[in-house]
């Protein structure tokens, strides 16, 4: 049982949980993920690590309520326990002094970008951050990102906050302005990552993306998360989750990401009919 220590609502449908998991936190690094199961009948779902505190033994997860499991997770409050929580899984981000780097976070993607940007800055890189969201209410962690980057630029699709436009618009400006960028990191919805890669390909700017595929075990056993990278099949759980974005077959990836759409719809409908409820572990906030 893994106790929830803190909860924040960052934006509509976007929530943050701090979870006590000392063994995971002890080894967690930027770029890795955990797999959670909210209750005994639950599914195993991967969540990217948005932050970690090794000393306090805490992992921070930020998630968007998109399916039944994340909706259910969103109802949980401090003191509640998550039945299963395993990690840190996947390979950590490759951190070294590259020189000048750009970190792009779109929507929920800002959360996993944050610890990577911080690690890159700590390694001595000049980090330009780009944060984008659909509209003002979906912008979160601007302060945290500002502290993790040497410079931060913000945009909203509808112009309700900061610049109007897409992250790719800002990215093009940054590339044109700075010229000598060594690496781009982009995390967000698949179409955003795909658009970023299309842009950076023009500039031959190496771009790393992080893929949130459908997974079951998360340890390389099932192959549910397989993705074609550079013509080869890779498992996002053990070979990733980060890959060279210019090599990723995004068309395949996006088709595979909706395999269970009808079942997810059924699950959500059933959940709504029964009335949203907190998955109780019955431990009443046991230590």
């Amino acid at each position: 049982m893994f106790k929830i220590i803190k909860k924040e609502v960052l934006a509509p449908m976007i929530k943050l949980l701090e979870i006590k998991a000392p063994l995971v936190a002890g080894k967690a690094a930027a770029g890795q993920f955990v797999i959670i199961r909210t209750h005994e009948l639950g599914e195993r779902v991967p969540l990217t690590i948005a932050d970690f505190d090794r000393e306090k033994g805490i992992i921070t997860c930020v998630f968007q309520e998109v399916g039944k499991t994340t909706r259910e997770l969103g109802t949980m409050i401090p003191g509640d326990c998550i039945t299963d929580f395993v990690g840190p899984l996947g390979l950590p981000s490759h951190i070294e002094k590259f020189g000048r780097v750009v970190c792009v976070g779109g929507g929920i993607g800002v959360a996993p970008v944050y610890p990577i940007a911080r690690a890159l800055k700590d390694a001595g890189n000049d980090v330009t951050g780009i944060v984008g969201a659909r509209t003002k209410s979906f912008i979160f962690w601007e302060d945290k990102m500002r502290s993790a980057c040497s410079e931060l630029r913000v945009t909203t699709d509808d112009g309700t906050y900061a610049r109007k436009g897409f992250v790719t618009d800002l990215l093009r400006e940054v590339i044109e302005e700075k010229g000598d960028i060594a690496l781009c990191l982009a995390i967000g919805p698949l179409p955003m990552m795909q658009a970023v890669c299309a842009l950076t390909r023009e500039y031959k700017l190496k771009t790393i993306v992080s893929l949130n595929s459908i997974m079951v075990d998360g340890t390389g056993m099932c192959g549910s998360c397989r993705v074609t990278v550079g013509g080869e099949t890779k498992f996002a759980c053990v070979d990733g989750p980060e890959f060279d974005g210019h090599e990723v077959d995004f068309a395949e990836m996006s088709r595979r990401s909706v395999i269970y759409k009808p079942q997810e719809k059924l699950s959500i409908e059933r959940y709504d009919e029964a009335g949203a409820r907190r998955p109780g572990c019955g431990c009443g906030g046991e230590k």
């Binding site: 009948l41 639950g42 599914e43 195993r44 039944k68 499991t69 079951v216 075990d217 056993m221 099932c222 192959g223 549910s224 397989r226 993705v227 074609t228 099949t233 395949e252 088709r255 595979r256 395999i259 269970y260 079942q263 997810e264 059924l266 699950s267 059933r270």
Partner: peptide
Amino acid sequence: ENACGVYSANEFLTRTNLMKAYLFPEYDTP
């Protein structure tokens, strides 16, 4: 082989046995 509807036996059996997908939607794993 990466088309939708291609499973490794491990995934097919793990979803069914470990995650009890045969009891979906009572169990959440499809």
